[in-house]
Computed example of a mutant assay.
Amino acid sequence: MTSAGEKQHYAIALIIELFKNLPSDMVVGILYDIGCQLDRSCNKWDLIPDLLPRIIFAISVFHAYGHQWPCQIVYHPRKCVGFGFSDGEGCERLWSALKALIPTLRVSGVCGRFFCICFHGARVVDGFW
């Protein structure tokens, strides 16, 4: 990734790579901040037509309330089949807890980054943060 912002081609590239490593009959739910726009683009421009029937797009709960009412109804994870009670904010909470490491890890090597993220990530997940 070379520039800031929500670029749909990055999401599509990640989806294609994900599906290369999954069984051909698996259906995947994707929680994405702008999942509604990505779903619309995929349908409108016929992007990833072979994968689209196997994808259920949703928007994380926090972001859903910033979208228009029809979007909230269609893409809210509590209203989409297969998402259960997930609010889609797990990664947001993890990265929020790890953001204090950014200045230190910016100048460290790969091994140092990996160690710090694993060590602090385990502490966050286990509730010791």
Rank of each mutant, 00 (worst) to 15 (best):
L105V: 13
R40D: 14
L31W: 09
P70K: 14
G66A: 12
C42R: 06
P49R: 04
P49M: 03
L18P: 02
W129R: 09
L38C: 07
W95R: 06
N43L: 15
C116F: 07
A100M: 13
S96R: 07
F83M: 05
V74N: 03
R78S: 09
K79W: 15
H76W: 06
P70L: 14
V81A: 13
W129Y: 12
N43W: 15
C118L: 10
L22Q: 11
Y75A: 04
E17R: 07
V28R: 01
H67K: 06
R40N: 12
W129Q: 11
L38G: 02
C111D: 15
K44Q: 15
W69T: 02
G109L: 08
I15N: 01
K44I: 09
R113T: 03
K99V: 07
F115L: 13
D33C: 03
L94M: 15
T104K: 14
F128P: 00
I34N: 08
P53F: 11
C36A: 04
G29W: 04
L51C: 01
G29N: 11
I102E: 13
S24P: 01
A100C: 14
K99Y: 14
C91L: 10
I30E: 03
P53I: 06
R40Y: 15
E17Y: 04
V27P: 00
L18N: 04
H76N: 12
K99T: 14
V27S: 07
W45V: 08
N21V: 01
S41L: 13
S41C: 13
S86L: 12
D39C: 09
C116Y: 09
S60H: 11
I34M: 10
A13P: 00
V107F: 15
C116H: 12
H63K: 09
H120P: 00
R106P: 00
I59Q: 01
D126L: 13
P49N: 07
L51Y: 00
I48T: 11
H120W: 11
V28Q: 02
G121Q: 02
I15Y: 01
I34K: 08
